[in-house]
């Protein structure tokens, strides 16, 4: 199958320091793709390069064959790249529904109001937030905020959803709910790329895993394979007798 999302040699330098160097990967349609690695490996930088919050020093990004490398954040969203943040950032002055409506109204240019409202309600439904639609976003619990974060991204009707450590701060039972939620999103036809450091979550969720260290790709493959890779073990545990 042809890849839906292609990163080709993505590189980001801050001053002389390469935060991400020559990172390439393909994500197939309908796949759940994880990016993992120790702290400081460059995972979040890669996600920011994908969603356009950072411009790459070199490299290329393609969505379904279209070059997005020089597109703005908003244009990438219009093209079908949705993004949920690690530190949940709801708009506190708005209700839950209005928060989601922002994504529905602006996710694609020229969506009529009624259609946007339908999309917002659908996103609320899929994330189990319908009962909370009229609550002010600042009143939500952390788990509900995470759901809202995903609902907002879903309301933009993405083809690829980028998730930045959505499990951070969740208790194990809540993390299990969140895993189900993400699986549901994929079953709804959305390709998922996520970065995560809760390893059981990666194990349960990812079809394929990209391991990064020092800004570079260490290896790539199914979870069970990559965690047996001596280079991955070394990245996580440190070199024997180094």
């Amino acid at each position: 199958m042809t890849p839906l999302l292609r990163a080709i040699g993505l590189t980001k330098r801050f001053g002389g320091l390469a935060a991400v160097e020559d990172v390439s990967f393909d994500v197939a349609p309908g796949e759940i793709f994880a990016i993992i690695g120790p702290n400081g490996a460059g995972k979040t930088t890669v996600l920011n390069l994908l969603s356009g919050l950072l411009a790459p020093t070199s490299g290329r990004l393609e969505l379904d064959g279209h070059d997005l490398t020089t597109r703005s954040t908003a244009e990438r969203c219009h093209a079908g790249l949705g993004r949920a943040f690690q530190v949940v950032q709801p708009f506190p002055e708005m209700t839950v529904r209005d928060n989601v409506l922002v994504g529905a109204l602006f996710g694609h240019p020229g969506v009529p109001r009624a259609e946007a409202e339908r999309r917002a309600d659908e996103a609320l439904e899929r994330t189990g937030l319908t009962a909370l639609a009229d609550v002010d976003a600042e009143e939500l619990t952390l788990m509900q905020e995470k759901r809202l974060e995903i609902a907002r991204a879903l309301a933009t009707q993405p083809r690829v959803l980028l998730l930045d450590e959505v499990m951070a701060g969740l208790r194990p039972a809540e993390a299990r709910d969140a895993v189900q939620l993400v699986k549901g999103v994929r079953d709804g036809g959305v390709t998922v790329v996520f970065i995560e450091h809760v390893m059981p979550v990666v194990r349960d969720l990812a079809d394929r895993v990209l391991v990064m260290d020092h800004g570079q790709v260490l290896t790539e493959g199914p979870y069970a394979e990559v965690v047996q890779d001596p280079r991955v073990i070394e990245a996580y545990l440190g070199k024997e007798g180094a």
Binding site: S51, G52, L53, S72, T73, A74, R76, C77, H78, L81, G82, R83, F85, Q89, F91, P92, E93, M94, D98, L101, V102, G103, L105, F106, G107, H108, P109, R113, A116, R152, A153, A155, T156
Partner: peptide
Amino acid sequence: SRLRHAFIAIRTNEDVAGVMGVRP
């Protein structure tokens, strides 16, 4: 209008507004 939503989104966090398709 829908601009009210865009205003609040931009005011709260421009990056988040951008990834939701708002052109700040």
